[in-house]
C-alpha cells in the first residue's frame, strides 16, 4: 500500500537537474558578458531579466514547484505579488516627490 503519493510523482532522475544547472551556468556567463558591453541604460534591466529567469528555473525545478500541488504555486505568486506591490507603491510615491 502506498500512502505517500508525492514520492511517486517525481521522476527521481538526475538528468533534469544537471540540465538546469548547465542552463544556470550559461546564463551566468551571458549576464557577465552582457554587462561588459556598453548598452547604457539597459544594463541593469538586462541583468535583472536574466536573474529573474535563473530564479524561475531554481523555483520550478530545484525547489520542485512544478511538481507540487497548485496551492504552493498560488502561495508563491501571492508572496511575489505583494513584494511587487511594495516596489510599485514605493516608486510611485518616490518618483513624483
Amino acid at each position: 500500500m502506498e500512502k505517500h503519493d508525492y514520492y511517486h510523482e517525481h521522476s527521481h532522475s538526475y538528468g533534469i537537474y544537471i540540465l538546469v544547472w548547465l542552463a544556470l551556468m550559461a546564463l551566468t556567463a551571458i549576464t557577465v558578458a552582457v554587462a561588459g558591453m556598453d548598452i547604457g541604460k539597459f544594463t541593469v534591466a538586462t541583468a535583472l531579466i536574466i536573474a529573474s529567469f535563473k530564479a524561475y528555473l531554481v523555483l520550478t525545478i530545484f525547489m520542485h514547484l512544478r511538481s507540487e500541488t497548485k496551492t504552493f504555486l498560488i502561495f508563491v505568486i501571492v508572496a511575489l505579488l505583494f513584494l511587487g506591490i511594495s516596489f510599485v507603491l514605493l516608486f510611485s510615491d518616490y518618483s513624483f516627490q
Partner: peptide
C-alpha cells in the same frame, strides 16, 4: 535554494551595474 536565489539577484546588482 532560496539562499541561492538571493545571491542570483545580489550578484548583478552589486557586481554588474558598471
Amino acid at each position: 535554494h532560496l539562499v541561492d536565489i538571493i545571491w542570483i539577484f545580489l550578484f548583478p546588482l552589486f557586481y554588474l551595474i558598471t
